[in-house]
Simulated assay, not measured.
Amino acid sequence: MTAISEFTLLLPGDPVPKGRPRVYRGHAVTPKRTVQAENRLEAEFRRKYPQTAPYQCPVRLDAEFWMSHKGRPDLDNLLKLVLDGLNGVAYLDDKQVVETHAFKRVPDPWAYGAHGRYRKRKSGDPYTSCGHEYEPHLYVRVRPLPEWTPTV
């Protein structure tokens, strides 16, 4: 197995939040969309880092969620999916994640129009954040924190 100083992943497309499990006849069932998104994240990790062992020390996780729409989902549900999706592959267990930094970007409400003025954003306009174009995606970085010690 190979030791890597940090893991990075970029998944194109709209980030997916962790869905609430539904209970059927006393059994909790994870929504199919959540399972597919977690499997996609794990598969991409294994494709990019095939011979890598998960970190066994405390880690920091950075996540950027570049969305195609405003409003839902909440940042915490987006982050939960990443934490669970990388369980067992980037780190042994998500309890090792002792530090996080996450942000969610949504498209600007205004777009630059053909007449040189800003107008309300319409369907089909490019996605922009602070005037800079982007495509919806998820970016994740996981770094070990071997010097980390808990404070009492």
Rank of each mutant, 00 (worst) to 15 (best):
G88N: 03
R105A: 14
L81D: 04
K95V: 09
V98R: 10
V97T: 09
A90W: 02
Q96W: 06
V89C: 13
L83K: 14
L78G: 01
L86A: 06
V82P: 01
D94A: 00
D76K: 12
L78N: 01
G85I: 04
G88Y: 04
D84A: 14
N77S: 13
D93R: 15
D94P: 01
D84C: 15
H101W: 13
V98Q: 09
K95D: 07
T100N: 11
V89M: 10
Y91Q: 08
A102I: 05
L86Y: 00
D93M: 05
L78T: 00
Q96D: 07
L81N: 07
T100Y: 01
D76M: 06
K95C: 09
N87P: 01
Y91E: 06
D76I: 01
P109V: 15
P109F: 15
L79S: 12
V89N: 06
D94G: 00
V98W: 09
D76F: 00
L83Y: 12
A102L: 05
T100M: 10
Y91A: 03
L79W: 11
P107D: 09
D76S: 11
V97W: 04
H101A: 15
L79N: 12
N87C: 07
L78A: 02
D93Q: 12
V97Y: 03
T100L: 12
T100H: 07
T100Q: 11
L86I: 03
V82N: 00
D108W: 03
D84S: 15
D76V: 04
P107M: 05
D94M: 00
A90C: 12
L83N: 13
P107T: 06
L86M: 08
K80E: 10
K95I: 09
D93T: 10
V106Q: 12
L92K: 15
K80S: 11
L86P: 00
N77Q: 13
P109H: 09
K80R: 15
P109T: 14
R105L: 13
D84E: 13
L92Q: 14
G85T: 02
A90T: 08
V82Y: 02
L79A: 13
L92R: 15
Q96F: 05
G88I: 04
K104E: 02
L92A: 07
G88K: 05
G85Y: 00
V106H: 09
F103Y: 04
V98I: 15
L86F: 02
H101D: 12
L81F: 08
P107H: 06
K80M: 11
F103A: 15
P107W: 05
N87E: 01
K104G: 07
D108M: 02
K104V: 14
A102K: 01
R105H: 07
K95T: 08
Y91H: 08
Y91D: 05
H101E: 14
L86H: 00
N87L: 02
D94H: 01
N77H: 14
P107K: 05
L83E: 14
F103S: 10
N77F: 14
Q96S: 08
V97R: 10
A90L: 13
R105E: 10
G85L: 03
P109Q: 09
V89G: 07
L78F: 02
Q96I: 04
Y91M: 07
L83D: 08
D93I: 03
F103P: 01
E99R: 15
A90H: 03
D76G: 09
V97P: 02
G88V: 05
V97D: 03
K104H: 01
D108T: 04
P107S: 06
